[in-house]
Amino acid sequence: MATKNFFTSSVGRKIIVGLTGLFLISFLVVHLLINSFILVDLVNPNDNGATFNEAAHFMSHNWLIRVVEIGLFAGLIAHIAMTVKLTIENKKKRPVQYAVFDGKANSKWYARSMAILGSILLMFLAVHLSQFWWPTKEALYITHADENSFEMVKATLTNPINLAIYVVGVVALGYHLLHGFQSAFQSLGLNHKKYTPIIKTIGTVFAIAVPAGFAFIALSVFLGLVQ
């Protein structure tokens, strides 16, 4: 009998997708927390982004965060590599398509569109990293310029095109999470009469609240509510 490798089996691979997904979800919490320091200016007008800059400075200089950042990229790559491979393989499993397909009768559109939502997210991520992550690295390691993360965020997000890209990104994130959050638990085998409804509720709240939080902060910057 051929190899029964966990990592090549259909069940094993979806467990990896779920685990990496949950890891990436945990990162979102940290990201939103750091971003929320931008809003300190709303309650303390003299802040001028100082709290946010301090937090950003900590995130870019702490050695433990640096190590976790490498892990984060590894998790992201694993999640993408695994899902791309699975999507391509799954597509081949139905060589002749149905003439009539009533998708909405049996499942939610965003659950069937995780690959499309994920692709939108990946494109957004490329733009997002080039706009916010790379300039910080450049200042830190290449130009050794003074970094002012808050000014950089302001300069980028006051541009309506950049704001629009940002909003599209977080909406795609919301739908991706709406399925992904509870789906990860199911893949790990965690389905229980008592806990699954709780997980699903938390997942829905998370999928709405977190992207809404990101969008709210971005809008606050765009509208000049924080200076």
Binding site: M1, A2, K4, S9, S10, V11, R13, K14, L86, E89, N90, K93, R94, G103, A105, N106, S107, K108, A111, R112, M114, H179, Q182, S183, Q186, S187
Partner: peptide, 22 residues
């Protein structure tokens, strides 16, 4: 063994859409 055979037969993998249970 059963999961292995399922993969060998050329079925796809699950994405938890729930269409099957519906």
């Amino acid at each position: 063994d059963m999961v292995h055979q399922m993969d060998e037969e050329g079925f796809g993998s699950c994405t938890n859409t729930g269409a099957c249970e519906a």
